[in-house]
Nucleic acid binder design. Structure first.
Lengths: 246, 246
DNA sequence: CAGTATCCATTTCGATACTG
DNA sequence: CAGTATCGAAATGGATACTG
């Protein structure tokens, strides 16, 4: 269980549970619709099963999550947000917008394509896509060795994502530098300009290529304007930083 | 520095810094008006100086806080929220309201009178108080041995608080069980009823006693209705709990 | 007052191996 | 698939002593 702050303060009580590492991100993943243990593992590619299990347990104890036997053919359990958990959704939105505005710049290690793939597949504009099956492959030649690509499969409006070849013919191949595609996804560069300049490249039927820019809804905070100044820091901080990383 | 989640997700980036233990509470204290290192220590009675120093440093690196040389006679520094830091205030309010609605019940150890005193002194309705100096003593006979009481001194609308005798005559003495006063402060019991029933007792000039109920503004989340069900838990969780605390 | 340095106990986390 | 048990490495945090 989370360590207490020894205060009745409602922010302290809320933070006791929500402030633990990973907890908020598990809530986000649940809020985004993941409900099975393995879906949560896919939504949070760098969490360990042990950690996820512990966090789900704490959230259950805190009354934020319930674990229910999955009805239907599918055996096993599903995790769902309770009313208390859904009460966190406005806070999550505000945190996301705050992060978009003010959080630190990205480092190369923050660009996990598995997480990107999960995000993209949650926000596909299926209305704008062809009927039947469409298979997209995203390819990032400069990405980490073991996960340079992912696939998104849309069948009649149902979107799935995988990090192993899906065994279907590819309808559209999207190739880009990872950082550049993430910038587009975050709303910091217009997709159109990147396509026109050939920095994000498409291969596939011309009709699909033409339609593709309408398929991506982008990050849900992409519309929020970034306010954080550039990378410059005060001398004092730079000195302290250097010193500590001796 | 905070460990990264390896994701570009804006909630992850925000949580990296804000999710660390104590960080959010430091922001709350700053938002409530504390700016000196020692005021922050008083606002957060259970933080260590080492921890506070570290957290202020991280917040400064994250651009949430600035450290400025204190102008005027007072030497030393002041910590203030930046625009980014002030951007967190709506989130703090929502977190507080969520905590009021849904957070766990209190345990005896959560009732630190020093924190209570700090909170109370921030929310005195000085308009309703006499001109000149008023000295209140709060006394909790069942509180922790070393901090059963605190004092609040109001001089012409300026409120101060201390945990050592202020060396002035007491105008009004307030005595109560700690838990009961906290319940009132949190908005879970009406002050009037507790006074009438003699469970919160006043000693001092009758005019002050009559006026006192208007002096306390209560916790800023006191108006929010609690939704969390009672202490019952599912059998499964109880079992798991017992097992782990072997 | 306003912190920082250091040391040690505790906690946390991830990897691996394992189970119904 | 859906987790749990265990173990070692690393991080965390508090107490104490110290400084300008």
């Amino acid at each position: 269980m989370a360590r207490s702050y020894g205060q009745y303060c409602p922010v302290a009580l809320a933070t006791e549970i929500l402030g633990e590492r990973w907890t908020m991100l598990v809530v986000v993943a649940l809020s985004d619709g993941a409900s099975r243990f393995n879906d949560l593992l896919r939504a949070l590619p760098r969490i360990s099963a042990t950690m996820l299990s512990q966090r789900l347990r704490s959230l259950e104890e805190a009354g934020v999550v319930v674990r229910v036997r999955e009805s239907g053919s599918n055996s096993g359990h599903a995790y769902r947000l309770t009313d208390a958990g859904r009460g966190l959704e406005p806070i999550i939105t505000d945190l996301a917008n705050w992060g978009q505005r003010w959080a630190r710049d990205l480092e190369p290690d923050d660009l996990d394509p598995r997480f990107l793939g999960w995000s993209v597949h949650l926000r596909m504009n299926v209305e704008a896509m062809p009927k039947g099956r469409t298979v997209l492959q995203f390819e990032f030649p400069d990405g980490p060795r073991d996960c340079r690509r992912f696939w998104i499969i849309v069948v009649d409006g149902v979107v799935d994502m995988c990090i192993k070849p899906p065994g279907h013919a590819i309808d559209l191949l999207v190739t880009s530098q990872l950082q550049r595609f993430v910038d587009v996804w975050r709303g910091f560069r217009p997709l159109r300009a990147e396509l026109d300049a050939g920095r994000i490249r498409l291969e596939g039927a011309p009709a699909l290529q033409r339609s593709f820019p309408n398929w991506l809804l982008l990050s849900s905070a992409a519309h929020v304007e970034r306010c954080r100044p550039g990378r410059e820091r005060s001398v004092r901080l730079r000195a302290a930083r250097t010193k500590r990383s001796r």
